[in-house]
Every structure is written in structure tokens, then in C-alpha cells.
Design a protein around this nucleic acid. Structure first.
Length: 856
DNA sequence: CGTCCATTAGTTTTT
DNA sequence: CTAATGGACG
């Protein structure tokens, strides 16, 4: 119906012929062609080159187009050369897409943008050029998560910390969190450092950093953090970059964490003459907290909303002309808060960059009216937002559908059938996506699709370079390239099996530590002694000889050939060829792919430097298949038909997020729902199941509150097409539980009984309706403020009761032994109306509402 | 040193 | 219920 309008909203030349470079075009017309296709707001965002600009770009409003056009504009106006534009994205995919689009727009006039890339790749690149200044060598290794954990395990062992009680994984998470917040070991608040390993968390962080330096390695967080340190300790280096970058562009600004923010801030400061007070401020800040364990002077109080750098306001004097920085983002699509992203960064942009111009892009070119209205109405329930109103000129289209299913199996069956129906109606499977909250939901769909013979592909999952076989292969190459890479050496010393087990490795470690030499060197020495059993000694000798041989060959052989030789001679390929398991063939295929991908790089060194940062596999999208992915990985994508299963309390919004992040968590979940809905161009279909198996046991669920928050006018309740259903009733709506009731007396499962009990206890006969303002189902419910609803199962946020059930006093008494679905068994220690404080045997003390526990 | 069984935990994910 | 990890045994 509206195809033409949707595809090229304003005749925007998405695939402009590459002919006649920008210069020609600029000369030819008053309005260059790349500008003529933009709407007024987009155009303003592109043409406002001076000073700070914040572009609030809602879903589907042409964000990437604005960014690329802006770059084209800067170049064609002669305001900067390609090498003077810093343009950062979060993912390689986004960076690649921008490069591609720029190429299309500019033809071959520009030989790439050297400073267009991800935060990490650009920071890493800067770091490599000045590695010595931060105690690294320019060929430092970027550790993957696996190496990181192994290194931490070693530290824990050396410190005699029970890694059962204090898992290395947890410490890795903490350190990552600190790095995300831009905190060096000395800056970690004492209280936080103490939570790990009986107060040794901070010390371990410091030890870990020390070890990294010895190993000539950096983890992902370091790429930014060490870069920040570099800039702070060496103002001359910083000034060099400040001068170089005339324009800074940032994509997905809502996802920046504190470290990225600080990094940007440093670069965005106006380049200053040598003795700028601002710069001195920066330096002093550093020298205060200095290296080693000098007393920490700078203030780091960071509650409740952490100010990344309290001294900041003094550092950046608003007086100086602000840098030309343009950040593009959408606060409503911030879904990575749990990973350290600070929505705050976008919310306070004009505070940080005084005089910033804020431009809103609100014209949506993607979705139909109903979908957009549903998404907008839903997200309007969030409090902490800058506020945008998306609008479309598209037709209303089909209403968003909500379908209830008996259980997750039926949900999968129903969606499967709908997809087949779409297929029969001539839709491409490539235009269909299923977006789930959590990956465990995918299984059911995969099972179903396999039965149906419906082609599908899973997006996301383990990344290419995270696969064991890829990391093993890389480890071999790393050892060849850098013999001191202990982590790599340790990884492959016994892969494939050579009879060099823990005992041998342990002894190598001892030796290496005593002599302060790398493992491979220790191995060389130990082989000369009789400390090892002849068998192990022989195996180790062979291995060392192999590495010597390969290293010699690497001087004269093409790196791709070398890789083949190594994989072959080490017996690694053979190991997988012998493997009879199902995925062995795929692994061999991946190894081939790895070798193929090496061709893009000059040499081994260059390949290794980039592999961990830019390697991601682009799965063959050639075949027509349904896409199956999490909501998170769907960001930035769009499909004609989007299925959104699992809209149930506890799953979506995720109870865990609510528990851990409270109100902010709920808002983030809601943004996730908003992202999900706005992925759809033509059809958005929501589902909830009444019963779902979680950790193997069935439990009854309640429709998501987000369903209630949809505007009734744009939503249609449909019947499950899955068959067995609930006796063909109207599905979701005021009557649906009644229907179930007639049906359900034959059910005797605990889950069913619990559902009955809950209903009887004044949760009402309705699990929900739509927003009452417009809801045809509403029956005088309370407010819609999100938290104090009455017909909703009580939910707790941060242990606080956010939804009251009835006002009656509790039927529980002190010391009662109770059972809670989530927390298990416990004892009542305090009663406050219907709020109980219970000491759970496993989960500790929690405040819960009485209707969620039963006496046992 | 390697294999097999038991125990345990169990969102979201980029770089 | 499953996948992954760790400990005990051969």
C-alpha cells in the first residue's frame, strides 16, 4: 500500500550512482544532491556544523542517513579532510554500514575515513601509537573474556581465595564495571572494592592490571581506560588529537558508558594553547591519585547518580569555544544500562556542552500508524525521558495484535502457523522476525520450525572469534607472534592432547614465576632438565621445536599459508577431523573461514592486532529464512512482520531486572518493548502464554503490564491459531480467565492450583485490560501510573512493595515457615500489613508480599 | 592424564 | 530440564 513512500521516504537517494564526485556535485547546484532528499529537521542536523549538536533521532527517523550526510557535507564544504573527522560507533556492523553508505554517496572521491570506527578500535589504535607511555608495547594483545577469566583465576589461586565462593567470573564483571565507569584501581570506592573476596576486590583489580602490563596485554575496558590515562598524563599527546579532529560524530550516544564519555570529553575540549588551566586541571587530577598507592585525593562520591568526574565542571570552562561535536541517539532506545551505559549522558548533553543545539527527528519512515501509536503510547509511560513524539505519514495499517496462548508450546505453534500463512500470502521469510526477551525462548521456536521444515536463522549467539576453535587457532598464532603471550601458550599447550596436563603446566608456572620469565621460555629451560617425565618432556620438546620452526617460517611465508601449516602440523585440524560430533564439520569450516579472513590483512601482526576488535561473522543472509533473535540484538534492524512472544510478567519485564535495577530497570525493559515494536514496518504481533516452563518446572504466568499499557485503539485481540487453546474463547480480555475456569477444573497441576488461589485472593477476574483512557475493557480500575495498579499481581522492586494487593492484615504470623516460588523456603521474621520480611534459607532476607508465599 | 558422573546454576551482549 | 563445570576414579 505504502511501499513507495516507505522505501524512499522523500526520494532520498539511498543508492546514489557513484558518478561525479562530491566536488562536482557541490559546484553543480545550490543545493547539493545529498541534501535535497532530507526533511527539514534532518537537513538542519546535517547543516549545523558548528558547535555541539545533539540529534534526538527516534526509531526509524533516518539517523544513519543524517550521520553520513553530515560527513559528506563537512567534506564537500571543505571544512575538514577525511582524516580530521572522528566518527565513532558502537559496533563494527554500524561502522561498516556507515563506510558503505559514505562510499555510495561520495563515490571514490574519498579513500575511506581513517577515524571512522568503534570506540574500541579507535581507542585501541591511539593506544598502540603511544603504547610505551602507558607501559605497553605497541604489539600488545587484546585479551578476550576467556583469557581474562583465566588470568583472574590464577590471581585468585595465588591469593588463596576460594574461587568457588568468589568466582573469577564475578570479579571479571566487577572489574569490567569499574572500567566502564572510568575507574582506575585507586579510584574504586572502598565499599565497592570490598564486596569481593572479603575486601580484597580492589587489591585484585590492581594486581590484575599489573599482570596485564607484564603480559603486554589489555582487555577491552583498558582500550578506553588506558587511553584516558594516556591523555591525562600526556597533555601534549591529547592536544595533538584535539587539534587533529575538527569534527566529532557519535552514533548511539545513549549507549555510551562513563569511560567512553570521558574519552569523548577529553577529545572534544577545544584544543588549547600550551598552558591552559583546563588541561592543568586534568593533569592535577591524575597526579593526585597517582600511580602506586599514593593517597586518593580526588572526590569519587558517586551516589545516587554517579557523576563520572566530579571535577569536570571546573575542567571544562564554558567560555572556550566548544568543539564541533555531534551526538546522535535516542534515549528511548537505551537498552544497555546493565552494561554500564549511562542514559544520563544523553539526558544532560546540553549541560555538558553548553550552548548545544538539540534537534529532534520525529518523522518515522518505517512503521504504520497503528504500530507507531502503540509504541509511542507505551514508551510514554517512562518518566526519565527527553520526550519525542514520533509521527508517520504512512497509513494506519493493521492493528497490533495481542494473542494469548495456553503455554509456550502453543505460542510457538501459533506463530509457526501465522508465518506459514504469511508465506502463502507471498511474504518473504526474510521479512519475518521473531524477537524474544531471553535466548532460552528460542529453543521452542527452533524445535517447532524444524518440525515444520521452516527455514530460520538465529542472529546473535556466540560470535565468530569467541568460538573455541577460532580462539585455539588464534592462540597458536599469538604464540608465534609473541612468545611471551603466556595466556595463549597455556591455552594450546595441550590442545590437541599431547599429554601435557595440569601437573606439567603447574610446574612450568612455578618455574616461570621464580625466574620471572614467560611460560614458553620456562618450558624451554625445563625441557633441558629431568624434572618432567620422559613422555611429557618429549611432547614439550616437540612443541617448542614446532614453534621455533613456525616462527622461522613466518619470516618467509605468507601469513595465510603459515596458518594452514600451523593448523596442520600441530595436529589441530586432525583433532577435529577425527571428532565425530555433529559440529565438528562446522568447526573445520570456521577454521577455513578464519584463514580466508586473514587475507584482508598485510601480515600476521596486523591481523592479530585487529582480530579481536573487528572480527565478526556475517552469516550468509542469502537464503530466505525467518530471523530469530533477542530484542537486544534486534536494535537497528527492521522487518515487515515482527513477532514478539513471551510478554509475561517476570519474563518481560524480567523479574531479575526489576529486582536488581528497580524502577530504572522497569523503564529499561519498557524501552526494550519499545525497541521491539518499532522494529516492525507493517505488522507487530504480540503473544503471551499462560503457562511457561522455567528451569524445568511449569509455572503460571500473568500477561505483561506492557500489554496493559498499549492503547486499545491500536490493538486487536486475536485468538490463538495454535489449536488446542482454551476452548475457543476470546483469548485475551476481561473474560479470558472465566473461560479458562470452565476449562480448568480438570487441571490439577500445582501451577494451576496456584493460579486459582491467586485469583481467588482478590487479584480480580481480569489479568489486565488496556490503558483505561481508551480501553473498551476497563472497569473502573485505579490509575495507570504503572506501579500502583490494582488488578496486577503484586511485584516487588528493590525489595519494596510497589503494588499492593488487598488491605487486609496478613494471615501469616511470625516464625511461620513459608514457601516462595522464586526464593524457596524461609521463615517470617517481620510482618507489616501484607508485607512480609522473610529470611529465606537460600536467598537471604527479602521483603515480599504475602500473596506470593504460602505457608508450609 | 583422561574420562565419566555428579552437582549446580540458570537474562539481555559489544568490544 | 539442560548445559556446563568440577571432582573422583581408572
Amino acid at each position: 500500500m505504502t511501499e513507495p513512500n516507505r522505501l524512499t521516504p522523500h526520494g532520498v537517494p539511498d543508492h546514489q550512482p557513484a558518478a561525479g564526485g562530491i566536488a562536482a556535485r557541490a559546484r553543480a547546484a545550490v543545493t547539493p544532491q545529498y541534501l535535497s532528499g532530507l526533511n527539514p529537521e534532518q537537513r538542519e542536523a546535517v547543516e549545523t556544523l558548528d558547535g555541539p549538536v545533539l540529534v534526538l533521532a527516534g526509531a526509524g527517523t533516518g539517523k544513519t542517513r543524517v550521520l553520513t550526510c553530515r560527513i559528506a557535507h563537512i567534506l564537500s564544504q571543505g571544512r575538514a579532510r577525511p582524516g580530521e573527522i572522528l566518527s565513532v560507533t558502537f559496533t563494527n556492523k554500524a561502522a561498516r554500514e556507515m563506510k558503505l553508505r559514505l562510499g555510495q554517496m561520495l563515490g571514490h572521491a574519498v579513500e575511506g575515513m581513517p577515524w571512522l570506527g568503534t570506540f574500541h578500535s579507535i581507542a585501541g589504535r591511539i593506544l598502540r601509537t603511544h603504547a610505551e607511555l602507558v607501559q605497553l608495547k605497541s604489539n600488545f594483545t587484546v585479551l578476550d573474556v576467556d583469557d581474562q577469566i583465566r588470568l583472574l583465576k590464577q590471581l585468585l589461586q595465588a591469593d588463596n581465595i576460594d574461587d568457588k565462593r568468589w568466582p573469577a567470573r564475578m570479579l571479571a564483571g566487577l572489574i569490567d564495571g569499574w572500567k566502564n565507569r572510568g575507574l582506575m584501581p585507586s579510584q574504586v570506592p572502598a565499599g565497592e572494592a570490598a564486596v569481593f573476596g572479603n575486601g580484597r576486590g580492589g587489591k585484585l583489580y590492581a594486581l590484575y592490571q599489573e599482570r596485564l602490563k607484564i603480559l603486554n596485554a589489555a582487555d577491552f575496558g583498558d582500550l578506553l581506560l588506558e587511553n584516558i590515562r594516556l591523555f591525562r598524563e600526556h597533555p601534549d599527546v591529547l592536544r595533538n588529537y584535539q587539534n587533529r579532529f575538527k569534527f566529532i560524530l557519535v552514533d548511539e550516544y545513549q549507549d555510551t558508558n562513563v569511560a567512553q564519555y570521558l574519552w569523548l570529553r577529553l577529545l572534544a575540549q577545544a584544543p588549547s594553547s600550551s598552558t591552559s588551566p583546563r588541561l592543568r586541571g586534568e593533569v592535577e587530577l591524575r597526579s593526585n591519585s597517582g600511580e602506586g598507592d599514593s593517597p586518593r585525593v580526588e572526590p569519587v562520591e558517586r551516589a545516587p547518580h554517579p557523576d563520572p568526574l566530579p571535577v569536570r565542571e571546573k575542567i571544562v570552562a564554558p567560555a572556550s569555544p566548544p568543539k564541533n561535536i555531534c551526538c546522535v541517539g535516542d534515549d528511548d532506545q537505551s537498552i544497555y544500562g546493565w552494561r554500564g551505559a549511562e542514559v544520563d549522558n544523553i539526558l544532560r548533553f546540553d549541560h555538558d556542552f553548553p550552548g548545544a543545539k538539540v534537534i529532534r527527528l520525529e518523522r518515522n519512515y518505517r512503521s504504520t500508524g497503528h504500530i507507531l501509536a502503540a509504541a509511542s503510547h507505551l514508551i510514554a509511560h517512562n518518566e526519565g525521558r527527553l520526550g519525542k513524539t514520533l509521527r508517520t505519514e504512512d497509513v494506519d495499517g493493521e492493528k497490533v495484535t495481542v494473542t494469548g496462548a495456553w503455554d509456550s508450546e502453543e505460542e510457538a505453534r501459533a506463530i509457526g502457523e501465522e508465518i506459514e500463512e504469511l508465506q502463502r500470502a507471498g511474504h518473504k521469510l526474510n521479512d519475518v522476525a521473531i524477537l524474544v526477551r531471553a535466548s532460552f525462548q528460542m529453543r521452542e521456536f527452533e524445535d517447532r520450525f524444524v518440525t515444520l521444515g521452516l527455514p530460520y536463522r538465529v542472529i546473535g549467539g556466540p560470535r565468530f572469534y569467541e568460538r573455541a576453535e577460532i580462539r585455539d587457532a588464534l592462540a597458536y598464532l599469538r604464540v608465534i607472534n609473541s612468545p611471551a603471550d603466556d595466556l595463549a601458550f597455556e591455552r594450546i599447550v595441550n590442545v590437541p592432547k599431547r599429554g601435557l596436563g595440569d601437573a606439567t603446566v603447574q610446574m612450568l608456572h612455578d618455574h616461570a614465576r621464580k625466574r620471572r620469565i614467560p611460560l614458553s621460555e620456562a618450558a624451554r629451560a625445563v625441557v633441558e632438565t629431568d624434572e618432567l617425565k620422559p613422555k611429557a618432556r618429549g611432547a614439550l620438546r616437540d612443541l617448542i621445536a614446532s614453534f621455533d620452526r613456525w616462527r622461522a617460517q613466518s619470516e618467509v611465508t605468507l601469513h595465510t599459508e603459515l596458518a594452514e601449516i600451523v593448523l596442520d602440523e600441530s595436529g589441530y585440524t586432525e583433532m577435529w577431523q577425527k571428532d565425530r560430533s555433529a559440529d565438528a564439520a562446522g568447526r573445520l569450516e570456521n577454521l577455513k573461514e578464519l584463514v580466508r579472513s586473514m587475507e584482508e590483512f598485510e601480515n600476521l601482526q596486523g591481523f592479530l592486532e585487529h582480530i579481536s576488535l573487528v572480527m565478526d561473522r556475517e552469516g550468509g543472509a542469502e537464503d530466505d529464512a525467518v530471523s530469530l533473535m533477542t530484542l537486544h540484538s534486534a536494535k537497528g534492524l527492521e522487518f515487515d512482520n515482527v513477532f514478539l512472544p513471551g510478554w509475561e510478567e517476570g519474563l518481560f519485564p524480567s523479574q531479575r531486572t526489576l529486582d536488581e535495577q528497580g524502577r530504572a530497570g522497569l523503564e529499561e525493559e519498557r524501552r526494550l518493548a519499545h525497541v521491539g515494536l518499532t522494529r516492525a514496518r507493517r505488522r507487530a504481533k504480540l503473544y503471551f502464554a499462560t503457562n511457561r516452563r522455567i528451569h524445568g518446572t511449569w509455572s503460571t504466568t500473568i500477561p505483561s503490564r506492557f500489554l496493559d499499557e498499549l492503547p486499545a485503539h491500536n490493538v486487536e485481540i486475536t485468538e490463538s491459531k495454535g489449536g488446542s487453546g482454551w476452548g475457543g474463547s476470546g483469548g485475551y480480555g476481561p473474560s479470558r480467565f472465566d473461560n479458562v475456569e470452565a476449562f480448568g477444573s480438570s487441571y490439577t497441576t500445582p501451577g494451576w492450583q496456584r493460579a486459582q488461589a491467586n485469583r481467588a485472593r482478590g487479584q480480580g477476574g481480569r489479568g489486565g485490560g488496556f490503558d483505561e483512557r481508551q480501553s473498551p475493557f476497563s472497569s473502573g480500575r485505579g490509575d495507570t501510573g504503572g506501579f500502583s495498579r490494582t488488578k496486577r499481581a503484586p511485584m516487588t522492586i528493590e525489595g519494596e512493595l510497589v503494588a499492593k494487593s488487598t488491605g487486609t492484615t496478613s494471615e501469616f504470623s511470625l516464625d511461620d515457615r513459608v514457601f516462595h516460588q522464586k526464593f524457596g523456603y524461609g521463615r517470617v521474621v517481620k510482618i507489616d500489613g501484607n508485607k512480609l520480611t522473610i529470611a529465606f534459607e537460600k536467598a537471604g532476607e527479602k521483603k515480599v508480599v504475602d500473596s506470593f508465599v504460602e505457608r508450609v
